[in-house]
Design a protein around this nucleic acid. Structure first.
Lengths: 149, 149
DNA sequence: CAGGATCCCTTGGGATACTG
DNA sequence: CAGTATCCCAAGGGATCCTG
């Protein structure tokens, strides 16, 4: 799939967020846990807090709450509180959140078709120290999972 | 690799990367500066270090180097070193990097059509404290500018 | 159950000064 | 010019414990 610059909307000025129109979206949608949350919510439908937590797995309640709160504030997720005993809260994706679905699909598509290339490029880079290249990569393989202790 | 709920592991924990196929892509492409860099590189074409820095604006050379290095390692950017005096280095987007263009376009599209909704949702959320809602947002509007001192 | 309260650690990123 | 080397900060996250 080729891509000429013409398909890229014009880059405006020079501020970080303004040099790139997609930057704001990144802030909203792409943090460590937001995509798994949105993904799960989108595919598994409405579910309660603890279900979400179990499905996503290694996320802690604190963080799940934080992200959920942010997603709710941004209108991507709808929170429903049931005043019962014990309390029950359900989360579901909103229409706005659902509007991201094609985007996610697109992303997943790119992943399946190009992730290998990235891996390969990494191995090539790591395994073959070109002389015209700076000594070392400062923060090279930082794909480590911070998800255990 | 599609996400079929039936294939999801039911026992044990699920890593964020496995709960959501797009997570790895996020790691690679969406950090604070990567999108502006890729965007500029793609739209403005091959350019040298300092041009990139000036175009992107507030990025520091250290960070620009770090991101550039990572992007190069991941095969999204190509670095060309010219052994001259003074040294000259040019960066350009690779084919792999270019393959992200439609994705970015899609992202930008979403931005223009839905960013307002997000803003609106935020104002509604902030301005209208529903009683069924937890007291406050822990890290609500964390769009803090860490960009100057 | 759904989170709030704390404490702590890792990291991306910023500022400044300095080489090849 | 194109980085390097330090030092430093803030924020996202993680672990634990506690409560409406």
């Amino acid at each position: 799939m080729q891509a000429d610059p013409a398909t890229w909307p014009s880059a405006g000025s020079v501020d970080p967020e303004q040099a790139c129109p997609v930057a704001p979206v990144v802030d909203i949608v792409f943090s460590r846990w937001t995509t798994p949350i949105l993904w799960t919510l989108n595919y598994q439908g409405r579910q309660r807090f603890i279900e979400l937590q179990r499905r996503i797995g290694s996320i802690t309640p604190k963080v799940l709450t934080q992200r959920l709160r942010q997603l709710e504030r941004d209108g991507l997720v709808v929170r429903t509180y049931h005043p019962e005993v014990p309390p029950r809260v359900e989360y579901e994706i909103s229409d706005l959140g659902r509007s991201l679905a094609p985007l996610f699909a697109h992303l997943a598509e790119w992943a399946t078709s190009h992730l290998d290339d990235v891996e390969q490029a990494r191995r090539a880079y790591d395994g073959n120290p070109a002389a015209t290249r700076p000594s070392a990569v400062p923060d090279a393989g930082s794909v480590m999972s911070t998800a255990n202790r």
